[in-house]
Nucleic acid binder design. Structure first.
Lengths: 344, 344
DNA sequence: CTGTTAGCGCCTTCAC
DNA sequence: GTGAAGGCGCTAACAG
């Protein structure tokens, strides 16, 4: 890159202030043992020259940057956004760390894994004191610095993680639907490699079992937590010879896809089809109709993960277990009692 | 930070492969002039040791990181998300740069400015080859590396920028409302320091003038592009002795706030109040009712800004002007002809 | 084709 | 209280 003006370095500051480089460094780091007048003099010069120390150099030397990294599967996803915002919230409270977000979305599983690993490698032991990875496609990372995972991979045992009461939430949603009299309840899954997805499916299954309903393979569609896939698989569900009267989607984005597919098929929600989501992303309250969903405090997950990470950074040790956050059913207007169906 | 395992460096790789450090470096950077066998040997060792080069060190030395930075006013905002996604899209196409996002949201203007400047300083000339700043509170930055601005500050002449046809869009929206017979049209503004905000207000004013309507100060409320403020100021508008029959909000988030305030006041949309937004964020199609709004291809703004930035990085020069993207009215279901009002 | 040398900007001993 | 010297991990000449 062509670079016309050269950056002002600690050296320039030292020269301009007539002191040594190390003195400037001391001032920068608020060390004691600097004469008050020297301190102010240096600060003045720093201000005048508009000097800011180089993250790269600082990091290289001291291995401490006060920056934490966040790796997301898709930066444009509402879930990710809430996580970010929660992490950001803690960091603002602490007012000590800066946040760098790294995006690695890719439709192809394998590419997403590679990208995630690259992100982690790029930050790890370099510009970042620790990393939070959200809903990773990859099970393991070649990391050295502290790492916390939100919504962990099924096969990731080695890191502290933050996860929701997915089973309880999915169970509650399914119970709600059966209590409304629904007997054919479709399910649209999430990314199968994630614990959240596995647990939600189990909650759905158990909810069915509780009222003596069998698990019908036709009614269970795969998914990947995207609206797109929710839409496509809802079409399959609605095209069944005996379509469901309700659909439980593994997250709100999928649920939105379900609603679209239903509307296109000429079905009214909730009169003709009940829909439940999972996540309670802020938008879900503004869907039409407002979506009944399972709330997991996504923002809080980010907040908690950041807390864990910072403990990990400062104390160097932390139990490698999943920290769990509660979920709760939020009833809005996308479900209705089922009348036009068989009572077995 | 306590660090138990020490990181594997280029040195370790060299030693393990029985070559010199510079040879490893050549392999890393795909230089020519490396014997194929040496090349493979080194690559093997790299793989075996799980080595990845340190961004910090690389950056310090070569001033070239292949990372570009994005500074957002609020990372959790739908507009920001679309920008990110657009930037991300170009970078994926190029498959050469990585993206780092930096968030600096703060409700207080002054703090936001400081934070933005800190973000820029942190990345500038250090871990980043160039920076994109979105809707800055600050007018200027102490930057050295290439910088592009999306939705520039009113007083920012010194950088290339990306902006929409805000005036044309706002004019079209206002004309649409007047063509529906509305004569009392409320307006809720955006962040006043931004060009976008200034231009939209002008479009609104001109739209009124075209049909001989005066600008009524009561009908023009300040704003800041947030739902919250949209909500609050819509309440003021609706509480007027002679409330408006339509509200044009400077962005979709504000428009959502307007809808909430209207609903709370017992007004139906569009029967009792027409609402128009600006942005066409994806969610706006799912609002209830679906929002009529002015589309600016936000995603494309990010894409274009990234293109500009990369040209700037590689060619070192670029005209410091605003690159403009078109806008277009998207009619959905939040507006209706005005009957119950005076025909002057 | 490969090794040696010299820093990038900063922080940290260690002297004074 | 302050300066000098060394090195963090890497790349870019320059020799061979």
């Amino acid at each position: 890159m062509r670079r016309t003006k050269t950056n002002v370095t600690i050296h320039d500051v030292a020269q301009a202030a007539g002191v040594s480089v190390s003195t400037v460094s001391r001032v920068l780091n608020n060390k004691v043992d600097v004469a008050p007048e020297t301190f102010h003099l240096v600060q003045d010069v720093i201000g005048k020259l508009g000097y800011t120390s180089s993250l790269a150099a600082r990091s290289l030397r001291s291995h401490r940057t006060n920056v934490i990294g966040l790796v997301l599967f898709d930066i444009a996803d509402a879930f990710s956004v809430q996580i970010m915002s929660g992490v950001d919230r803690l960091l603002k409270e602490l007012n000590l760390y800066d946040l760098i977000v790294y995006s690695g979305v890719d439709s192809k599983r394998k590419l997403a894994e590679d990208r995630e690993r690259r992100c982690v490698a790029l930050m790890d032991n370099s510009i970042t004191d620790g990393i939070i990875v959200v809903a990773p496609s990859a099970a393991t990372f070649a990391n050295i610095s502290p790492l916390v995972i939100i919504d962990p991979h099924n096969d990731t045992p080695g890191y502290p993680g933050v996860i929701s009461e997915n089973h309880a939430g999915a169970l509650a949603a399914t119970q709600y639907l059966t209590s409304l009299g629904h007997r054919r309840i479709g399910y649209i899954g999430g990314r199968p490699e994630l614990q959240s997805s596995t647990q939600r499916l189990q909650g759905y299954t158990d909810g069915l079992t509780q009222v003596g309903l069998p698990l019908e393979p036709d009614l269970v569609q795969a998914g990947d937590y995207t609206r797109q896939t929710g839409y496509l698989n809802a079409q399959k569900l609605l095209g069944l010879p005996k379509p469901p009267t309700a659909v439980f989607a593994a997250n709100d984005a999928s649920a939105l896809g379900v609603m679209e597919a239903a509307r296109e098929a000429g079905l009214r929600i909730p009169e003709d089809l009940s829909v439940v989501g999972f996540d309670n992303i802020p938008e879900s309250a503004y869907f039409y109709p407002p979506l009944t969903t399972v709330d997991q405090s996504i923002n809080q997950m980010g907040y908690l993960a950041a807390q864990l990470l910072i403990r990990l950074i400062n104390e160097g040790e932390l139990e490698n277990r999943n920290y769990t956050l509660p979920t709760r059913l939020v009833v809005r207007e996308s479900c209705m009692a089922n009348h036009n169906n068989s009572q077995p």
